[in-house]
Each structure stands twice: as C-alpha cells, then as structure tokens.
Design a binder for these strands. Structure first.
Lengths: 183, 183
DNA sequence: TCAAAAGTGTTTATAATACACCCATGG
DNA sequence: CCATGGGTGTATTATAAACACTTTTGA
C-alpha cells in the first residue's frame, strides 16, 4: 500500500493481490519475494492467514511503499477494493499509525510537516492538524529536524522546515498510558 | 494461556503446543477445534503463521482461559517456555491488556479489584496499582459494579465490591489519544 | 502591502498517577 | 481498639487539542 494524492492505494496484479505459491522447503519470505519486489517495500508485516473460497490457504502480508517511490503498476484506491485482506490491512495500518512510528514507511525520506500531514490524511481517511501532528511526533521523538528548508511555491508562504523519521524500523511510540510498568 | 497464581501459564500437550493438522477442505477453525477444547477458551485470536524447522507451515492461535475455569492438563509457566510462538503470544497479550478490554478473557465472571489486579500482575509481569486499575477501567466503561460484596477473610478487612467486565467480546477501549478523528 | 503558508505561544481539556486519608471488618 | 484490606478525595503531572497570533515568503 501507499498513501499518495490524498488517497490510500493498493497495488494489484491482474485485478488481484500479488501472490505466489509456497513451494515445499520454501520460506514464507521467499514466496513473498516472488510475489512482490521487496526492495521497494519500506515495511512488511504479516497480516492474517485464511482459507480462501477455493480451499487454498493464504497468508497475507501488509507491505508499505514510500509516497516518493515511483513504483509502476496497477495502483487502485484501497477504499474501493472488495478484495480479501484489504480491509484488514487498512485497519492495521490506521491503528499502527497512531501508536507507532509506522509513518516512516509511507513518508518520503525527508519532508515538511504539510507533506507528512497529507500522508496521514490519506492513510487515516480523516483530517489531521499539521500543528498537532508536529507537536505530538516531535514530543515523542519520532521526528527529527534536518538541515535546510523547502522553498515556497509561486503563491508564497514561509519556507517549511524539513524533518525525517528518527528510525526506519517499526517501534511502539505510545507506551499506553494505562498499566505502564512502574518506573 | 491463563493468568493464575501470579503467573502466566501455557497449556502443553506432550511438551508441545496443542496442534492439529489441516485436512483438505477444512477451515482453520475446525482444525483448531480438534487441537483444543474451544468451549473453555474465553477468547481466541490468530497470532502468526510460520514455516517450522521441519518445513511444515503452522498457524498459531492465542487462546485465553479464565482463571476460575479449572482446565486440567499440563500447564507450564509461559516465561520458562522456549517453544515457538509463546513469546509472541505473551507480547500480544500484554499489549492488548493495555488498550482493549481483553482482561475479560482472563478474569473470573465477577471479581474484586484485588483479584483482577492479581490477574493483571500475572499477565503483565509487573506491579499494578489496584487503585489506578479500578479508576482507569471504570472510567473507560470496561468494568461494571455488580450487586453484593465479597466477605473478608479471617484476617479481617473491609468487604470488597464486586465487578464484572461490561463486555465479553474484544473491544478497543483506548482510542489512541493522538491522531484521533476530529469530532 | 497583501495573501498564503508555516510555525509558535498559550490556554484548555482530558486522563492517569500518586498519595493521603477514611471505611468496614475480624480478632 | 487495632491490624488488615478496601475504597475515596484530591493534588499533581502528562499529554493532546484548540486557536490566536507571529513569521517569512511571492507577487
């Protein structure tokens, strides 16, 4: 999946989710590598295993692509997809965006807060305040300033500061307030 | 798994996790039902699918048993188990105890706050304040008072109020503070 | 000098933690 | 009447939301 142009997209292959059969002696990861180009995926995690209508067993993975990676293919709006697993992938993604640093997998390497906001809006499907997004993610140490600023467009405006994610591996950033271990 | 006597236990079957082969035309759930007695499980969820060392593919489930259900069998401390999936099960359980009502699956039908605290301590592996546990869970609407009180033991003490979980199906109770949809 | 876009300051709201203190019981 | 365990009141702290205001730019 990717979050771009205000929308969450799924990459299809012939109208279906990319898939590969698991050969004997094979690992799930190697089968996955046959189905998709792992190099473009900024994050991969296992989603769910289900017996499909035809009796076969499928293990689904959620793979995330940066909004700046120009991956060609049949990208379709996730919201309009009735394919199995897509709904589960969307829910998983939305939840993890809230309590982990998972945004790193959807955002460009460096970005302005406005750009990051667009990614979050696309993935979450609801409005997000740039002000509070910045405050929350910086407070949690998820975002770091990088040098330089993005020049404004033709319509003017103050140049925007650039940020990056402090880590590009999944980390839980919201240690749930309740029931936290004592210090 | 169950949380009892201050410990988190796994039910083993011949030193391994209970398992059943998936026959053709079978659903994962029916295979699961062959491996364990679903009736004693207050909650079941899929955990992870992995290719084992012998090349077979295994889909693991997390099943939770109430601390008052007296399920016979080879219960072993989860902390001491090096079996595959047990670590993942523990992490999943701990995380979900914090942001869902999952406690319902480990606790008795009705209980005092002290009893519930013991269940949480066993499952989380760290101390939990009874005062704050009560406040948080009641505030969130996870716990409800039920009539009656538990009489004190021989050593005295004020009779304890009884509670129950408001729901016995998994619900997310902590809509992560950050990035919540606007009202 | 105005509109646009970014960013900061400050207040308010909400939730959880800490801890002192009060309550009800058995011996 | 005191030890024990349960429960409440309340202050403090942490975190996020809201929003007014300031900054920096292009035209």
């Amino acid at each position: 999946m990717r979050a771009r142009d205000g929308r969450l997209d799924v990459l299809l292959d012939g109208g279906r989710l990319p898939a590969a059969a698991l050969s004997p002696g094979d690992s799930l990861e190697s089968a996955l590598a046959r189905a998709v180009d792992l190099a473009v995926l900024a994050h991969v995690e296992q989603l769910e295993t289900r017996v499909l209508e035809d009796g076969s067993v499928a293990t689904a993975y959620l793979g995330l692509v940066s909004s700046e990676a120009d991956v060609p293919g049949d990208w379709r709006p996730a919201a309009e997809s009735a394919l199995p697993f897509v709904g589960a992938a969307q829910s998983r993604l939305r939840a993890k965006l809230s309590y982990t640093n998972l945004g790193f997998a959807l955002a460009p390497a460096t970005f302005t807060i406005s750009e990051l906001r667009e990614v979050y809006v696309a993935a979450l499907g609801h409005d997000v305040s740039a002000t509070n997004l910045q405050r929350v993610l910086v407070r949690r140490g998820v975002l770091e300033r990088v040098d330089g600023r993005r020049a404004p467009g033709r319509t003017g405006g103050r140049p925007a500061a650039l940020f990056r994610f402090a880590s590009d591996r999944l980390e839980v950033t919201d240690e749930f307030a309740a029931l936290r271990p004592p210090r």
